[in-house]
Design a protein around this nucleic acid. Structure first.
Length: 446
RNA sequence: GUGGAUGUAGCUCAGCUGGUUAGAGUGCUGGAUUGUGGUUCCAGAGGUCGCGGGUUCAAGUCCCGUCUUCCACCCCA
C-alpha cells in the first residue's frame, strides 16, 4: 500500500472535537447576539473573480491568494467579508431591503507568514449596516462588539476609535504632500510600540520634513498627554487647531456625535478611547474607524472595523454608505484559552449507555433510542467489554453519566444510572432517568 | 516578503565535546480469579531521530538545502 505522510499546509489547521467545542461555544454566543440586534445571516463563496478584490485593500493586496482556474479565469480566495458584501449588495440591490443588516461568519484567507494568532485561514465574524449614513449605526456596532465580548467573559479590553479623515487632515495640516499621507498614518500608528521618539525618527526616515514632522509630533503628544482627558475634551482641543480644514471639522463632528451616543448608551468610559494614532490598514475606510484591543495576551487586536463610504459604489452606479465591524474568531479563542475563560463543562454528550453483554444488548439499544427521542445526547458502547473499559471511555470523553442495564435490571425493566463524578449509582426506570437528565440538560436539548 | 530560533516515541522532553542494540515521564495495549472507572502494581507495543543531500572509518550529534512551528520586523483578525 502506498503511504502519504500526513501533513498540513503552512498556516492551515485542523480542528479536533476538543477545539470544536470551544469554537462552537464562541460562535453560538456571537451568532445569537447578532440576531438579537436584528442582523440576518449571509454567506458568500470562498472564491471570487480576482478583479472583485483587486484595488480594494491598498498595500495589503499582495496577501491575496490568487490562482488561475481550469477555464483560465483569474480567481482569488476571499480576503475579508466586507468586499464580498459590497459585491453582494451591488448584485442583489433590488432584492435586499434597505437598510441591509447582515452578519456573516466565514473563513477568509491571507498568505501571510504565520505566527501565533495569525493564520492563513481564519474566521471572521462580521456585522455590517448598509444604507445608513447616520453615525448612530457606528455607535450601535461598537455597542454590539462590547456586548459580545463581555458576554464571552472579556474583562480587560478597549475599543480604540479614530476617524479616517482626521488622519488625512493631519497630513494636510502639517503640510505634507498627499502622496505621503499614508506613510504618516502608518508611522504614528506605531506610537504604542516605539514611543514618541521612535515616531519622530520614523517620520524622518520616511522623508518627512522637519517642520511638518514637528507639527505632527505636537498633535500626537497632545493626545498622549490627555490620556486622562475625555474624548470630548480632546476633540475640543483639536477643533481650533484644525480650524482651517473643513474635512477635519466634519470628522470631529462625526466623532463628537459618536462619543455622545456611546455616553448616552451608558457604555463605561474605560471601554473606549479616542486614539488619534489609530490607523487601520485596509484601504476602503472613509469615516470613523475602530479597533478592539486586548493588552493582556500579547496578540494585538481581536477585531476592528469602520465606515466605508465608497466601496459599495464600486459595484453599482451610485454610492451606498455602510459601516461594519469584524471580530476575529481565532484570536478571541486564543485569548480565552490563554486566560482560561472557557467553562469547563463544555461536554457535548450527556450520557453513555454501556453494553453489559450480548443478551442484553438490544435492551440497552432500546434505552439509548428512547433517551435520544427525549432529546438527550446519548452515546452507546457497542462491544460487551469489561465495564472498566467502558467507564474509562466515558471518563476520557468527559461524559458525566453512564447507564448500565444488565440481566438484573432488564428483569425489573429498570436501569442503573451512574454519576461519574461522585461514583454514586441508582437503580431507576427509564422515565425517571429521562426526567433526571432532561432537567439537568434542559438548556441544551433542542 | 526580510531577519532569527526550532524540529528526537501519540504528548512533554533528555541524549555531554560525533563512537556500540536512542532514553525518561505521561499516554496507549494487556493483565492483577470474570456486575463498576478515574489510585496502585506487573507486562508489552510504539521512533525512517522533520525531509533530502554532503563531510567522516563512524552523525540524532558537523555542513548545505528544504519543509514545519515559533519570535521580531512589515502588517493585520
Amino acid at each position: 500500500m502506498s503511504y502519504v505522510k500526513p501533513r498540513l499546509l503552512k498556516g492551515m489547521r485542523d480542528f479536533l472535537p476538543a477545539d470544536m467545542r470551544r469554537r462552537q461555544y464562541v460562535i453560538s454566543k456571537i451568532k445569537s447576539l447578532f440576531r438579537r440586534y436584528g442582523f440576518e445571516a449571509c454567506e458568500t463563496p470562498t472564491m471570487e473573480y480576482a478583479d472583485i478584490l483587486d484595488g480594494k485593500y491598498g498595500e495589503e493586496e499582495r496577501l491575496i491568494y490568487r490562482f488561475e482556474d481550469k477555464g483560465r479565469r483569474q480567481v482569488a480566495l476571499k480576503y475579508d467579508l466586507t468586499v464580498p458584501l459590497a459585491r453582494l449588495v451591488g448584485m442583489y440591490q433590488q432584492e435586499l431591503t434597505m437598510p441591509f443588516k447582515r452578519y456573516q461568519i466565514q473563513p477568509v484567507f491571507r498568505s501571510e507568514k504565520p505566527q501565533k494568532g495569525r493564520y492563513r485561514e481564519f474566521y471572521q465574524c462580521d456585522v455590517d449596516i448598509v444604507g445608513v449614513n447616520s453615525i448612530l449605526a457606528d455607535a450601535e456596532l461598537i455597542l454590539l462588539a462590547i456586548d459580545a465580548l463581555e458576554r464571552l467573559g472579556f474583562k480587560d479590553f478597549k475599543v480604540r476609535i479614530n476617524h479616517r479623515r482626521l488622519l488625512s487632515a493631519i497630513a494636510e495640516y502639517s503640510g505634507v504632500p498627499k502622496s505621503q499621507a499614508d506613510a504618516i498614518a502608518i508611522s504614528i500608528d506605531k506610537l504604542d510600540k516605539i514611543g514618541i521618539d521612535g515616531v519622530r525618527k520614523d517620520l524622518t526616515a520616511r522623508g518627512i520634513e522637519e517642520k511638518s514632522r514637528d507639527k505632527i509630533i505636537d498633535l500626537i503628544t497632545l493626545t498622549e498627554r490627555s490620556e486622562t482627558a475625555s474624548p470630548e475634551d480632546m476633540l475640543n482641543q483639536l477643533r481650533p487647531i484644525l480650524k482651517d480644514f473643513s474635512s477635519a471639522q466634519d470628522a470631529l463632528d462625526d466623532l463628537e456625535y459618536l462619543f455622545s451616543t456611546l455616553k448616552g448608551l451608558s457604555i463605561p468610559s474605560e471601554r473606549y478611547d479616542f486614539d488619534l494614532t489609530l490607523a487601520r490598514g485596509l484601504g476602503y475606510y472613509t469615516g470613523p474607524i475602530f479597533e478592539i484591543y486586548v493588552a493582556k495576551p500579547k496578540i494585538g487586536s481581536i477585531g476592528g472595523g469602520g465606515r466605508y463610504g465608497n466601496l459599495i459604489g464600486m459595484f453599482m452606479r451610485r454610492n451606498v454608505p455602510a459601516t461594519g465591524i469584524s471580530l476575529g474568531l481565532e484570536r478571541i479563542i486564543d485569548v480565552m484559552s490563554e486566560l482560561d475563560m472557557f467553562p469547563d463543562n463544555l461536554d457535548q454528550i450527556h450520557v453513555l449507555v454501556g453494553l453489559f453483554n450480548v443478551e442484553t444488548a438490544v435492551y440497552s439499544l432500546q434505552i439509548a433510542k428512547q433517551l435520544r427521542e427525549a432529546g438527550i445526547f446519548t452515546d452507546i458502547y457497542y462491544q460487551p467489554v469489561k465495564l472498566k473499559k467502558q467507564f474509562a471511555y466515558a471518563n476520557k470523553k468527559n461524559i458525566p453519566y453512564v447507564v448500565m442495564a444488565g440481566p438484573d435490571e432488564q428483569k425489573e425493566n429498570k436501569l442503573a444510572l451512574k454519576d461519574m463524578k461522585t461514583g454514586e449509582q441508582r437503580r431507576m426506570d427509564l422515565q425517571q432517568a429521562i426526567i433526571f437528565l432532561g432537567e439537568r440538560y434542559e438548556n441544551q436539548i433542542g
